[in-house]
Design a protein around this nucleic acid. Structure first.
Length: 196
DNA sequence: GTCAAGATTAGT
DNA sequence: CTAATCTTGACG
């Protein structure tokens, strides 16, 4: 059903299954009475303690504790002194798996997003993990938030994407050779809101 | 306490 | 290509 809030069962699978399945789903933010929403066009899967590129690689810490919690919750972290990134936790408690939302196609509340990002052109509004968090006012306060409640921040079922799904190596990661080579980035081919 | 690195972005 | 910017986590 299009528009239905994604239930916990959706997230309770491997990040490698969830990441491509999220493409075409809606990311929705309720902010001061506005509904801000966009279609997910790019994701990356991060596994647990066996994935050298994952924040979960060295086990639980105060920062990544949400990753080891229940699926369907948000993991939001701060990076490079300026930016927040949004993940959805997948698998089962203790796995440390998550999917990074890297880009969305803005659909609803675009003027509000533009105001938050100093009138950025629509194509540059949410085509990156840090950019979409700024546009949707996602920060540390939403770390650990339950995305299945349908309040404040959640995901909804969308129409199946018309664009083909592509995959490739993850962007900007460090780690061993296996982590660098793993094709765990998923995106909609030809969509202009995919990051660059 | 100290320090290096970071799942990025904007600007030259 | 490089600077910005500051939190985190490892080490001691």
């Amino acid at each position: 059903m299009t528009g239905a809030v994604l239930p916990q069962a959706f997230y309770a699978r491997s990040a490698l299954e969830v990441a491509p399945t999220l493409l075409g789903c809606l990311l929705v933010r309720r902010l001061a009475g506005h509904r801000l929403a966009g279609r997910i066009v790019e994701t990356e899967a991060y596994l647990g303690t066996e994935d050298a590129a994952s924040h979960a690689y060295r086990g639980p810490t105060p920062r990544n504790r949400a990753m080891f919690g229940p699926p369907g919750h948000a993991y939001v972290y701060f990076i490079y002194g300026n930016h927040f990134c949004l993940n959805v936790v997948t698998g089962v408690i203790g796995d440390g798996q998550a999917v990074l939302i890297r880009a969305i196609e803005p659909l609803e509340g675009i003027p509000v997003m533009q105001a938050r990002r100093r009138r950025t052109a629509v194509t540059e509004l949410t085509n990156g993990p840090g950019k979409l968090c700024q546009a949707l006012a996602i920060d540390r306060r939403l770390d650990g938030h339950d995305l299945t409640l349908g309040e404040v921040l959640w995901l909804e079922m969308g129409s199946p994407p018309t664009e083909p799904i592509r995959s490739g190596p993850r962007v900007g990661v460090r780690g061993d050779e296996a982590a660098l080579a793993a094709p765990w980035r998923f995106y909609l081919a030809g969509n202009r809101f995919v990051s660059r």
